[in-house]
Design a protein around this nucleic acid. Sequence first.
DNA 1: TATCCACATAAGTAGTTGCTTATATTGAGA
DNA 2: TCTCAATATAAGCAACTACTTATGTGGATA
Lengths: 104, 104
Amino acid sequence: MQEEQIFRALADPTRRAMFEALARSERTVSELRRRFSISQPAVSQHIATLRRVGLVRERRQGRFSRYRAEPTGLSPLIGWIDRYRTFWPERLERLQGVLKDLEP
Amino acid sequence: MQEEQIFRALADPTRRAMFEALARSERTVSELRRRFSISQPAVSQHIATLRRVGLVRERRQGRFSRYRAEPTGLSPLIGWIDRYRTFWPERLERLQGVLKDLEP
DNA sequence: TATCCACATAAGTAGTTGCTTATATTGAGA
DNA sequence: TCTCAATATAAGCAACTACTTATGTGGATA
C-alpha cells in the first residue's frame, strides 16, 4: 500500500483515534460505536478505509467482526519519515536511547 | 504544533512533494512553480500551509522569499508513530542497523 | 518616480470527504 | 422458521479542499 493512502487515512482524527483504540485491543464495530459518538455506518466506513490501506485486520467470529490494528501497515509512513531523520541528530539520539533500553 | 495539523498538511501529495524538494535545497516560489505544474498562487498557498504547521521556514531576501524544510517540524508525527514501533521488532532491528551506520 | 517582478491574498468553483438515514445481508437463538 | 442483533452498503448532503483567475503589496531598477 502506498504512503499516499496511509497519509490520507490517518489525516482524519476519528480514524486515527480508532487505530489507536484498535492497537490497544481488539474490538467490534458496536464497541467502537459506543466509544465514538458517531453512527454505526460511520464506524464501518472508517474501518473499511483503515482496512483498505492495511492498517486494520478483521477476524470474523460468527456474526461479529473483531478488528485490531496492524502496526506493520505503518511501514510506508515510517519509510517516508526515515528519509528525514538524518536531518535530525538530536531526535536520533533520543531514539537511540529508546533502542538501548529495549535491548535485553 | 499538534499532530492533527501535520497529518493534514502531509496528506496532500503535492504538499508532501514540496516538503521533499525543500528538504533537498532552499527554493523560491517561482522555482517551485516551475517544478510543479500548478499556478503561482497554488504554490504560495501550499507553502503557507506548510509554514503554518512548522514544516517549512522562510528566509526573506529582498523581494525574494527563500523557503526550506524544517525537519524538526515532523516531531509530532514521529512522536505519534513511535508509540507503535514497540509493536514492531523487525522494523526496529532494521532501524538499529541504520543507526549503527550513522555512529562514526 | 514609474514600472517590472516576486509573491501574497481574495473570491469563486468543482471535486472530495465524513456524516447521516434507509436498506440489505447474514448468523444465532426462540 | 421467524425474529433480532451485528454489520455492510447505498444514497444524499453539507462542509472542506485544492485549484483557478483577479488583484494587492512591496522591493529593485531604469
